Simulated assay, not measured.
Amino acid sequence: MMKYRFRGGGAGREAYERFAKWTPSKGFESKAGWTSASDDGGFLLLVVVDVATLLEFSAKFKDLNDELEITPVVELSERVQIALNAYAWSTLSPDFDSNPEDQLGGRDEALRPLD
C-alpha cells in the first residue's frame, strides 16, 4: 500500500497528468487507488514482483510528493491463516517456550553479570 501526499502548487495536477501517460513496467500492477477528499494525496494498492520494481515506480513520482509511505500488506484472509499456522506451531513445537525467563534459565541467572 502506498500513501502519498502532493507538494504544494501544481504538483497534484502534474502527478495526475504524468500518471495518465505512464505505462506500468513488467511485474507491476496497480490494483486500486483512492484520492483523499481534500485532493492533496491518496492511496494506491500495488502488486509488485520485487522491491526494485516498486522503487522504479516511486522514483517517477517522488519529486511531486511531500510524503511517500510504502507499507507491505496482505489480504486479511491470508493473514488469518498465517496467524493460525503460527499459533499452532508455537503450541506444538518442542523447541518453543513461551516463558522468556525459562529460556534464559530463570530471572536470577538472566541478570547475573557476565564473567
Rank of each mutant, 00 (worst) to 15 (best):
V51L: 09
L84M: 11
G106V: 15
E101D: 13
L84E: 13
I82G: 02
L84T: 09
R7M: 06
A88C: 03
E17K: 12
A86Q: 15
G8P: 02
N65I: 01
L54P: 00
M1G: 11
S90G: 08
L45W: 04
F96K: 12
P24I: 03
G8F: 08
G41N: 07
T71L: 06
V51P: 00
N85E: 14
D95Y: 15
L104A: 15
E29S: 12
E14R: 14
S38E: 13
D63Q: 02
S36Q: 15
V49N: 12
E29V: 13
L111F: 14
A20M: 10
V80L: 09
S93C: 12
A37V: 14
S30G: 03
R79K: 09
L114V: 09
E109S: 15
G27M: 13
A20N: 11
E78C: 03
K26P: 00
V80R: 07
R5A: 07
T53I: 12
E101P: 00
M2G: 05
V73A: 14
N85L: 06
L46K: 01
W34F: 15
R107D: 01
L104D: 05
A110G: 07
L92Y: 10
V49P: 01
D50A: 04
F57P: 00
T35E: 04
G105S: 11
K3H: 11
R18K: 15
A52H: 08
F57K: 04
T91L: 13
R13W: 01
F57C: 03
S30A: 13
T23F: 03
G106S: 10
F28Q: 07
L64I: 03
G105M: 05
V74G: 03
L104Q: 11
E14D: 08
I82L: 08
D97M: 02
R18M: 04
N85A: 10
G10C: 05
D108L: 04
T53N: 04
F43S: 00
L54Y: 04
S58M: 07
V74M: 14
L44I: 07
I82Y: 08
I70A: 06
S98D: 08
N99L: 03
I70H: 12
N99T: 01
D108I: 06
M1D: 10
D40G: 11
G8D: 06
T53D: 00
G10D: 14
W89S: 09
V80D: 04
K60A: 14
R7A: 01
L111N: 05
E29W: 02
L84Y: 12
G8E: 04
F6H: 10
G9N: 09
E67F: 05
G106P: 07
K21Y: 01
N99E: 10
D50N: 14
T23P: 00
P94I: 08
S98E: 07
R13N: 05
A88K: 07
N85D: 15
S93K: 05
S36Y: 15
E75A: 11
W34K: 01
S90L: 12
E109H: 11
M2S: 05
E14M: 11
S25W: 00
A32W: 11
K21F: 02
V74E: 07
